[in-house]
Nucleic acid binder design. Sequence first.
DNA 1: AGCGATATATACTGATCCGATATATAAATT
DNA 2: AATTTATATATCGGATCAGTATATATCGCT
Lengths: 180, 180
Amino acid sequence: MDIRTLCLGVLSRGDATGYEIKKAFEEGPFGHIHAASFGAIYPALSALSDAGMVLGTEMAQEKRPDKKVFSITERGRTALCEALMAPPGEDKVRSDFLFILFFAHFLPAPRLADLIDRRIAWYRNCLERMESCDCEAARPGEVFVHGLGLAVYRAAAEYLAANRDRLLEEVSAGSRMVAE
Amino acid sequence: MDIRTLCLGVLSRGDATGYEIKKAFEEGPFGHIHAASFGAIYPALSALSDAGMVLGTEMAQEKRPDKKVFSITERGRTALCEALMAPPGEDKVRSDFLFILFFAHFLPAPRLADLIDRRIAWYRNCLERMESCDCEAARPGEVFVHGLGLAVYRAAAEYLAANRDRLLEEVSAGSRMVAE
DNA sequence: AGCGATATATACTGATCCGATATATAAATT
DNA sequence: AATTTATATATCGGATCAGTATATATCGCT
């Protein structure tokens, strides 16, 4: 799913600036769905604007830099619906954390403990934020995907907390064997 | 984590061809950890070879095209360990499936049902394959990450199966209301 | 006082990666 | 015969990223 479609999706729910769109993909409703960077969002909005799929309106602000608010056009809505009807590509995951953990035997135990504890805290922080989010008025798909995100994050946090000590013991035991 | 480091990681466990490295990131041990494409793997192997971090040995085969088997050098091992000690970047997720589901109200219910059922089947297929994988002789980090992948996939499959019908009903109800 | 961090904003750039393609050797399926 | 599948290497134009630059403010630390 290209970043242009992602932007159309965000704008279909309401007008937004490029900055706000980025925020939606960080800690907002799309945070566990799809990543997107400023380096891709702004050129995408520019292309969408050239193609008449969005309309950008510049506004001055007080105490803050000027901003450009984008709204989706009917042409943009049509393009979004077509994209949503296309078969989805495969999910893509890139996790430095998991890659590093795969090679846990290369790391000292205290470093491992720190990494895992930070990740557990991260998950718990996300869960708190997501649980305090009021989804009652949201659309069924939004609620469904939100619930799926909660379920997956919970499972991950629980597994990390339940298995952390064992991994650390095994890695420490492996280090002692090597030292002997 | 760049693709060069990923390749070093795969090769640290044993010699491999570029094709085999790709396979490791598809349905192999790194399947739920990090994605990587041929377009990135081959240039990365070439750069690693130029930098003396891997060694490529060309081999002829019968009934198959020639292949080039890569092995990691000591310099490569050192670079891998340094990369593993660096702070991990943020996980990146890109899921067309979740994005489409977020906008479930735009899709007809039969299409939605098909998408969800295919994904449930995909998860169950992955779980079967992962569960039949013999990890007893693996290193502690490998076992840990494997278990985490299982936990997350199970949670996702269970949530999808448990909530599928409700989503379809709500989307159908929403369509009837719009029609009225 | 100056710097860094934070937040809100837009935009750009060189590096990295992707999806698709090309090519090759085979075998199986339609 | 064409397509699909599997094993292999390699490339290319387009997409995306991480970091940077710039701007308006405020706050915290040295």
